[in-house]
């Protein structure tokens, strides 16, 4: 069985039903009125009423969206070997402080010897297999599925940076943290990683057990800015 006990996507059918993975934020999202659908083995909050209204908020003010269902894999290897692996699979060399988006995944160098790969759940199994294969070719490398261990919130909109300014001392100005910037630091007093996906869009990753706390703090801080909760439907529309 290996280390399958770590991977949400390794669930199998029991009495004809495959257990659905649930975000650590599901309770909060349901309370906020989210509608859910099962996508790629996850129960995903798709909308909070009107997608049009959510899009408006995301474009004009600030919005937050649960992205905890993203697949996350941690690779560890000696620095040189990790760099070579990244060069082959991540579309180019990686530099600390900068993530690279390649083939739908974010390749995030946390340290010289530790890499976090964040990807849509639809490619989790294939990516996991690819990473295992790549790691097997190295002297000593490990791949661990930490998808369930990290929650993720997307903060987007013109007010995204202003909202984050109430929660973190990280310098997220474009000049200091351009697109692709990866910044570990404290957000709302918990260890987190902030990824500047693109202009006005920040992915905040943190420990899953703190999800409810972080979401409540972010939502509360965003109230003065008119924050709206946004489901995956609106995000897909924005990405289209």
């Amino acid at each position: 069985m290996g280390y399958e006990f770590l991977s949400p996507h390794r669930a199998i059918a029991q009495s004809g039903v495959v257990p659905v993975a649930r975000s650590p934020l599901e309770h909060e999202l349901r309370r906020a009125g989210a509608s859910f659908a099962v996508r790629d083995g996850w129960s995903v909050a798709t909308r909070f009423g009107s997608v049009a209204a959510e899009l408006q908020s995301a474009r004009c003010r600030v919005a937050i969206s649960d992205r905890s269902w993203l697949a996350k894999f941690e690779l560890q290897a000696p620095a040189q070997q990790l760099a070579e692996l990244a060069g082959e699979h991540a579309g180019g060399a990686l530099e600390l402080g900068r993530a690279r988006h390649h083939d739908g995944a974010w390749w995030c160098p946390v340290t010289a010897r530790r890499l976090l790969v964040v990807a849509p759940p639809s490619c989790a199994a294939a990516l996991h297999a690819d990473l295992d294969e790549a790691a097997a070719g190295l002297d000593f490398a490990s791949v661990v599925d930490v998808s369930a261990g990290m929650a993720a919130i997307l903060v987007l909109g013109p007010g995204a940076r202003e909202l984050l300014a109430t929660l973190t001392a990280l310098d997220l100005r474009a000049v200091a943290a351009p697109e692709g910037a990866l910044r570990p630091g404290s957000v709302a007093r918990v260890p987190a990683i902030v990824l500047h996906e693109r202009a006005g869009r920040f992915l905040v990753l943190f420990g899953a057990a703190q999800a409810e706390y972080v979401w409540s703090v972010v939502a509360d801080a965003g109230e003065a800015l008119g924050v709206a909760f946004v489901g995956s439907d609106a995000i897909e529309a924005l990405d289209a």
Partner: peptide
């Protein structure tokens, strides 16, 4: 400032 009290909760907390 705003008092932060980070809390960890199990996924089964609900």
């Amino acid at each position: 400032g705003r008092p932060f009290q980070p809390a960890k909760r199990s996924s089964i907390h609900a």
